[in-house]
């Protein structure tokens, strides 16, 4: 046990300097006034005025996470049941877009979705009317799904490869049809993977500002944009920005709490 904690020392030091101290600073800035430096709740009260922005961010992130799950789950299952070489190829294809810069990947979507982009010029060629594909919340959700899908696939895939083939065969022997195999065997066994996938997809999606900035147009101002403006825009206000990000952190904490309670249930279940 002792050697274990010693081995973790570099990480503990890392966490102390780059997580704990910055977090304390965020709280400090959120709770002090910009002009006088005195302790105040004004920043937090101000930040809560923009609660609708937070709701909109959560809403888009929830939809994106749900779509990611629906796309990723069948893929991960198929992957885990195919031969090793096929698995390697699919995994490579899943990870391939991640090799490219995040900003570039999102920027490329503008070229595709734009009013004069690939799709619309193709439609015009065919004599069809143009469709509005960019500058709406749909485009933002698309951007989120595209960017965060690998985050959903990888944990699902790694947990499903651990499901023994014999378990599935056993359930088939005991009279489960195809649908029941999924719901009674695969789904419960892959539940921890679903929770991890949801967490690692939802958290970056809810705080994004690049995607909404590039694809969202006028009506998709998200909490990430709000925070970004306070730190990098000409609204430059560290205290208010810190308060806003604290508000976001609280929401993320609460959702993590909910997910973790599921995880605990799962543990208890498997103990019984």
């Amino acid at each position: 046990m002792k050697t274990n904690s010693k081995a973790a020392f570099p990480y503990i030091l890392w966490v102390l300097f780059f997580t704990v101290i910055p977090f304390v600073l965020v709280i400090y800035y959120a709770a002090t006034s910009k002009d006088t430096g005195a302790i105040t709740l004004d920043n937090l009260a101000n930040a809560s005025r923009y609660f609708p922005v937070l709701i909109r961010s959560v809403y888009l992130a929830v939809i994106a996470t749900a779509i990611c799950l629906v796309i990723a789950y069948p893929l991960a299952f198929t992957m885990s049941r195919s031969s090793k070489s096929v698995q390697r190829v699919i995994l490579l294809l899943v990870m391939l877009p991640m090799w490219m810069n995040f900003l570039l990947r999102t920027y490329a979507w503008i070229t595709i979705l734009d009013n004069n982009g690939l799709i619309n010029s193709f439609l015009t060629e065919l004599g069809l009317p143009k469709i509005q594909l960019i500058n709406n919340s749909g485009a933002v959700v698309l951007g989120m799904v595209y960017n965060y899908l690998p985050f959903m696939i990888t944990p699902l895939y790694s947990i499903m490869t651990k499901i023994d083939k014999s378990v599935i065969e056993a359930s088939q022997d005991l009279g489960c049809n195809g649908w029941q195999v999924i719901t009674k065997t695969v789904l419960p066994l892959s539940f921890p993977g679903i929770l991890t996938g949801i967490t690692v997809t939802f958290v970056p999606a809810v705080s994004t500002f690049v995607i909404s900035g590039l694809l969202g147009g006028s009506n998709c101002f998200l909490i990430g944009d709000l925070i970004q403006q306070q730190f990098l825009g000409n609204e430059y206000n560290l205290n208010y920005g810190a308060a806003t990000s604290l508000m976001l952190m609280v929401v993320v904490f609460i959702s993590m709490g909910i997910f973790n309670s599921f995880d605990n249930d799962e543990m208890e279940d498997s103990m019984i």
Binding site: N46, Y50, P52, V53, R56, D225, L226, Q229, E235, N237
Partner: peptide
């Protein structure tokens, strides 16, 4: 700060 908060209002209202 009035300009700043009004601008956020413009950008964020639902």
């Amino acid at each position: 700060s009035l300009y700043d908060s009004s601008w956020i209002e413009v950008r964020s209202s639902l």
